[in-house]
C-alpha cells in the first residue's frame, strides 16, 4: 500500500528528473529540494506551533502552574490544557507536521535507495515499478552512478595522497550541527530542554555523519542537500539564530555572564502581576537550582517597570 501510494510515485519522479538532467547526483539534489518544497507548508506550520509553545513557556501563568502542580501531574495536565485552550494553542501543533513529514522523508530515502539499484534483483524490481505511461525509462537503467568523484552506490571517499577522506560525511556532520545550532531557539530557561537540545546538537550530527560515512554516497548527498535546504528554509522564515554560531551578532543586553550562555526573554509581552510572583510557592529541595534560574531570567527585564509601579 505505502509502496504503491508513496514510494512508487517518488521513485518515478526521481527517474523523471533523471531523464531530464541525465545526472543521478543532480537528480537526488533536485528531488530532495522538490520534496522539501512540497512539505514547506507543514514546516511553516511546525515553526509557528513551536514558536507558540515557546512563548507559552515564558507565560507566568504557565510557570506558576508548573511550580504549583509539579507533584500532581494529572492536575498539571488539566491546567495546561485549559491554558492551551484559552490561548488557542494546539499542543500537538508542532508534532503533527513532523509526524506527517517523517514518513515522507523516509520514503524519499527509500526511493533514492531503490533508484540506485546496485544488483540485478534490485534493478529488475526497479524496472517493474516504473509507470509505463511515463516513457521507456527502462532504457535509462541502470542510472549513471558517477557524480563528481563519487560512485553513488558506494560510501564516498576522496583519495588525497593515498588517504580516503570522507568529505561528504564531514560536510554532513558540519551542516547537521550548523542546522541544529542555527534553528535552536533562545533558551527559555528550561534547563532540561536546554540539555536535551545540547545533546541533540552533539549526537545528531554524529549519527548523520556515521550514516553518511557508511551508506552509499547517493544517500549522503541527500542528507547534505536536505540540511543545506533546511537552513535556507529556516533563514527564509526568519527563524535562524545567527547569534548561536556567530557570538558577535548577539545583542549585548542578551548576554548573561554565567557560563557565557544567553538567556533571552523576548517577544512575549507579559503583564507581570507582582502578586503572582509573591504567590508563587517556595521552591522545594531538588528543584531549587532550576527555579532560581528561571526567576533570575524572568526578573532581569521585568524589574524596572515593577519599580516604576511602586
Amino acid at each position: 500500500m505505502w509502496e504503491t501510494i508513496v514510494i512508487q510515485p517518488f521513485t518515478n519522479i526521481l527517474l523523471l528528473i533523471y531523464s531530464l538532467v541525465n545526472n543521478f547526483g543532480i537528480s537526488i539534489i533536485l528531488f530532495t529540494i522538490l520534496i522539501r518544497l512540497i512539505t514547506h507548508p507543514l514546516t511553516v506550520k511546525q515553526f509557528k506551533a513551536t514558536q507558540s509553545m515557546q512563548k507559552l513557556q515564558e507565560d507566568p501563568r504557565y510557570k506558576k502552574m508548573q511550580e504549583k502542580y509539579k507533584d500532581d501531574k494529572e492536575r498539571l495536565a488539566q491546567e495546561q490544557m485549559k491554558l492551551y485552550k484559552e490561548l488557542g494553542i494546539n499542543p500537538m501543533g508542532s508534532c503533527l507536521p513532523s509526524l506527517i513529514q517523517l514518513p515522507l522523508i523516509l520514503s524519499l530515502y527509500q526511493s533514492v535507495t531503490r533508484a540506485m539499484a546496485a544488483s540485478p534483483v534490485e534493478l529488475f524490481k526497479l524496472e517493474k515499478i516504473i509507470y509505463p505511461w511515463l516513457g521507456d525509462f527502462g532504457r535509462l537503467l541502470p542510472l549513471e552512478n558517477q557524480f563528481l568523484w563519487m560512485d553513488l552506490g558506494q560510501p564516498e571517499r576522496l583519495t588525497i595522497f593515498g588517504f580516503g577522506i570522507p568529505v561528504l560525511a564531514v560536510l554532513v556532520v558540519a551542516t547537521t550541527f550548523l542546522q541544529s545550532k542555527l534553528i535552536q531557539p533562545p533558551s527559555t530557561g528550561n534547563d532540561q530542554a536546554a540539555m536535551m537540545s545540547k545533546s541533540m546538537n552533539i549526537y545528531m550530527p554524529l549519527l548523520m555523519g556515521y550514516m553518511a560515512y557508511s551508506l552509499a554516497s547517493g544517500l549522503a548527498i541527500y542528507f547534505l542537500t536536505s540540511n543545506v535546504f533546511g537552513i535556507i528554509q529556516y533563514a527564509a522564515l526568519g527563524r535562524v539564530n545567527w547569534g548561536n554560531i556567530l557570538p558577535f551578532l548577539k545583542k549585548g543586553d542578551e548576554k548573561q555572564p554565567d557560563k557565557g550562555k544567553t538567556r533571552v526573554v523576548d517577544a512575549v509581552s507579559v503583564d507581570v502581576d507582582v502578586d503572582d510572583e509573591d504567590d508563587a510557592p517556595e521552591p522545594q529541595k531538588g528543584s531549587a537550582q532550576k527555579t532560581s534560574s528561571q526567576k533570575s531570567t524572568a526578573t532581569k527585564k521585568k524589574r524596572p517597570p515593577m519599580k516604576r509601579r511602586r
Partner: peptide, 16 residues
C-alpha cells in the same frame, strides 16, 4: 540509525 542502516555497516544490497 539501526533502522536506516538496516543494522549493517557498509552498503546494503539485495541479491540472490
Amino acid at each position: 540509525a539501526l533502522v536506516l542502516s538496516a543494522c549493517a555497516s557498509g552498503v546494503r544490497v539485495t541479491g540472490t
